[in-house]
Design a protein around this nucleic acid. Structure first.
Lengths: 244, 244
DNA sequence: CGGTGTCTTGACGGTACTCAAAATCTGTGG
DNA sequence: CCACAGATTTTGAGTACCGTCAAGACACCG
């Protein structure tokens, strides 16, 4: 599996799998675009950290002084409204980059769902690296375009699907993300709560629970405990998501 | 007004307003990052076209053989679901770039709402230009990040606001876009139909109509005919949008 | 001035939200 | 290993918001 596919979902021209010497991750994010010299330089500049579940990576409004590369684990991007309602913008996985913006401050909260490992790089370091390694800049742009496409998918789901369709679409998106990481697509890690799924899909947590119950009764979802889920029939699930 | 603010909403370092020699537009999109040589080169490579209202610029699935820069007029980005339901991903304005993706095909339909002018550039031309002018690549990335932020805003609106709040948020977003173009922020052009607004906000067109009626009765919206709208009190409208 | 498309308004029904309580799961400490 | 406390999930009942259907009003354009 080409690590470049981790976010793009498309085969890329580059085929050599060169793990980040510092991150040590198979799943290369931006690192994938670097040559040996770049990787070496990057390994001196980034800070690798283990992070716990529920740990906050940054908050909306924080100065965007660094970007975070998710090496392993799952994270949640969300925004808080004035009245306390929360909108989850998306879940992020190994290989994804969090907190990249040209603005002065972060536009969303980022919080770990599981324990994991992150690589942090300061903005000046990133800027310098992008100048020295045009391929990395190109790669970062691709990641950005992909994130845009994912967010647009999310918008279609929230805007134009019913509760059960939304949950089906959510499960499928988890499956697609797992494929990009090279994991099995029918046996998923699903560490998020019903409330978090509801905040992603624009539903109450009770509605999410009812939708899971309905899908379970139809045999489209099997919850095996320990935050693990099986999807025995992805095609049938896709039909549900599209309202057929 | 710095044309670089057209999408970013933030003041940028560059201050010289260098209109695209071919487009002739005050509102520079990517052109703003080019020097004289770059502008000259670009003027030879791009094709400038007048387009009519309701003209399709590209469709979902079309090969993404060129990107489109919107010089003047308003456009609509949308996706069609299997059952015919439509989700409008957003409205786009002068200075915006449409159809930029690293995939092989467009992921959404783009259609003009008004008559206008567009600049087309083929992918190979764009790729070549990005290599020769790193500043242009950087600029394109900024546009991409900004588009992502807008889509995220949209997601919050659709996921976590009630009908009237959504319409208020939509009007405010039109106002923000007008400010970026240097137009008056309280006297807006609003060429889209209730149905299109509904497809943007995840509402039925009748619900949009009822929300407009409610806002009109509260004096927050004045429709002056000819697809023009006045927003006498933006702050009050913002309070409505946030559900206060 | 008529025709067509858009908008408004009303009535009704359904989906999903809220409130509430019971059941299940998870992790911790004895 | 078991018991227990807290968190999460499930399920139920009632309600509210919004979608659907329908008809009439309005605006725009030839």
């Amino acid at each position: 599996m080409n690590p470049l596919d981790s976010l793009t979902g498309q085969k890329t021209a580059q085929s050599a799998v060169t793990p980040c010497t510092r991150c040590g991750s198979r799943i290369a994010g931006i690192c994938a675009a670097l040559d040996i010299a770049g990787l070496d330089e990057m390994s001196h500049e980034t800070r690798r950290n283990a992070v716990q579940a529920h740990e906050t990576l940054f908050r909306e409004g924080d100065p965007a002084s660094s970007v975070v590369m998710l090496v392993s684990g799952m994270a949640k991007l969300s925004r808080l409204m004035a009245d306390g309602r929360q909108q989850v913008l998306g879940f992020r996985f190994a290989g994804d980059i969090l907190g990249f913006t040209q603005g002065k401050s972060h536009s969303a909260d980022a919080e770990m769902l599981t324990e994991g490992v992150v690589c942090r790089m300061t903005r000046p370091q990133l800027e310098g690296m992008l100048e020295r390694f045009p391929a990395a800049q190109r790669r970062l742009m691709d990641l950005c375009v992909q994130e845009l496409a994912l967010t647009q998918d999310q918008l279609v789901t929230v805007g134009r699907r019913h509760a059960e369709q939304r949950v089906a679409a959510f499960l499928l998106s988890l499956s697609v993300a797992a494929r990009r990481r090279g994991d099995r697509v029918q046996h998923l890690e699903m560490p998020m709560t019903r409330a978090e799924i509801g905040d992603l899909l624009g539903l109450a947590l009770e509605t999410v629970s009812r939708a899971f119950t309905a899908l379970r009764k139809r045999g489209l979802v099997v919850e095996t405990g320990g935050h693990r889920v099986e999807l025995p029939d992805l095609e049938a699930l896709a039909l549900v998501a599209d309202g057929v």
